[in-house]
């Protein structure tokens, strides 16, 4: 176990240096898009009460946090790994070293996790200030970490599957973009017709939105424990897929 953690840190070390070198860029990127969503959707589009009895801003901020966990974590781990694998070939160098596949997968998630957490917490800190209904609790921190981790693991899978930069872009617009707008980030999934709902509940971001919103507004919503379980199951499945892809090396 301690071995796994040490190896994970060793795998992640280079990415942490990358994070350090580019911190300012990453900071700007992390805060820009959630801020734009917040202004456009939170203030521009709609105001007033929602059907659960909170202001729309309070409703949408957890949604945007979920969305940021997806876009930041996913793109950070997928992009960097894709570059390391296809262009720098430094991923090969790592694969030739005696590291367990689990530690490689976990280590490669760390960058995505950090970016996601940075983005989510910056936004949420702003949210606490803008919407008094929102609360800060251990549960919301756990929920944000679980979502960032899940989408980081998904990013690793996509980076391993992508054969070129173009496939990356295609997968991005096929998986990420639709999830961004539909999965209960800007509106409540329960307001849709049941068929749509069923489809959306098959996507991890829907569950991420539900749990982050549930944890953020405990006075208005019962916490959806099932969604938390489902999201963890997604994370486990992505982890297993990542290990499988590395192991079979169809890459």
């Amino acid at each position: 176990m301690s071995n796994l953690l040490v190896d994970t840190f060793h795998v992640a070390w280079g990415d942490l240096m990358f994070f350090k070198h580019n911190f300012l860029n990453i900071l700007v990127m992390s805060i820009m898009s959630p801020l734009l969503y917040l202004i456009a959707f939170g203030y521009g589009l709609r105001t007033g009460e929602t059907d659960i009895g909170v202001s729309y801003v309070a409703f949408v901020i957890p949604g945007i946090a979920a969305l940021s966990s997806l876009s930041s974590s996913f793109s950070a781990s997928a992009t960097r790994m894709n570059v390391q694998r296809l262009y720098y070939k430094s991923f090969d160098e790592m694969m030739m070293c005696p590291l367990s596949l689990s530690s490689i997968v976990l280590g490669k998630c760390v960058l995505g996790l950090m970016r996601g957490l940075l983005s989510c917490f910056l936004l949420y800190a702003l949210g606490l200030f803008l919407a008094p209904e929102l609360v800060l609790s251990p549960l919301i921190i756990i929920c944000i970490i679980v979502s960032c981790m899940t989408f980081s693991l998904l990013g690793v899978a996509v980076a391993l599957l992508a054969k070129s930069h173009q496939t990356m872009a295609t997968l991005n617009s096929l998986i990420i973009l639709p999830m961004t707008f539909l999965c209960g980030t800007f509106f409540s999934v329960s307001s849709l017709n049941p068929v749509f709902q069923a489809i959306l509940y098959c996507l991890p971001l829907t569950h991420a939105s539900e749990i982050i919103r549930g944890a953020a507004l405990p006075d208005y919503i019962d916490f959806p424990w099932i969604s938390l379980a489902v999201l963890i199951a997604f994370a486990a499945a992505f982890f297993a897929i990542d290990v499988y892809l590395l192991k079979t090396k169809k890459i």
Binding site: H10, H21, Y88, E93
Partner: peptide
């Protein structure tokens, strides 16, 4: 096959860590 986002020393340290 060096990681171009890092310095030479960081590449070496990273390798040694692996």
């Amino acid at each position: 096959s060096l990681d171009k986002d890092l310095t030479i020393r960081e590449n070496m340290i990273s390798h040694a860590m692996y």
